[in-house]
Design a protein around this nucleic acid. Structure first.
Lengths: 108, 108
DNA sequence: CACAGTACTACGCAATGCACAGTAGCGGCA
DNA sequence: TGCCGCTACTGTGCATTGCGTAGTACTGTG
């Protein structure tokens, strides 16, 4: 099964979760998500998600010059983002529990 | 958070799971999914999924007359469907585990 | 200077859940 | 009889969103 569809609606949550640990810029978020196990994630998806979340008012953004490459656009959570993370996380948790029950009944 | 996006890529799995318990027709599958906890599921989504899975060769289909309403189009798993259920279930399980780890780190 | 790695942007596609509308059979009720 | 509500299914079109691809641009290395 292609796991890409599983990310729908969850990528926001995943991005918020890694930014909750510490601020990060796009390329960095991609690497952290891949290290966390989301290996097949596309970089364009992450950049798109960051822009969406920022546009939705859930993230702060500041540019930092780097001496190891181009400038870096850092993102961090604000109050809206933290609230969104909390609410999304609880929705995810109960949804995952429901799915696990379903699967348990089907394949005991 | 809107849970509808969470269903992306998982509705197939949920439908396969309920059909693994026993054959069912569209309306019945909708009810069973709602009882299982997927309360906001739309009926058109389920009918669409059943058609998609059938077209993909994962389901058998037979029509049964009913004396309590219109005819009922039953669906059941075949070998392809069972294989798909097993593979999707394992993908889901590991994906869910990854997400739970991510969330645990973010909100300990 | 070519090239690899880093970092970001923009465009368009494909999958899919869902709303809405339509068709149709059945039983109950006034 | 006529209407309503429940059951049951189909078809159309839309919105969201992850991703592929291409393009821009900076830095250090050989």
């Amino acid at each position: 099964m292609d796991s890409s569809q599983l990310l729908k609606g969850v990528l926001d949550l995943a991005v918020l979760a890694v930014l909750a640990e510490r601020d990060g810029y796009g390329y960095d978020v991609v690497r952290r998500l891949r290290e966390a196990g989301l290996e097949d994630i596309g970089d364009a998806s992450v950049y798109g998600t960051l822009r969406r979340l920022f546009k939705a008012g859930a993230l702060t953004s500041y540019v930092v010059a780097s001496d190891e490459g181009p400038h870096r656009k850092y993102y961090g959570l604000n109050d809206v983002g933290r609230a969104r993370l909390a609410s999304s996380a609880s929705t995810w948790t109960s949804f995952a529990a429901t799915m696990n029950d379903l699967l348990k009944d089907a394949a005991p």
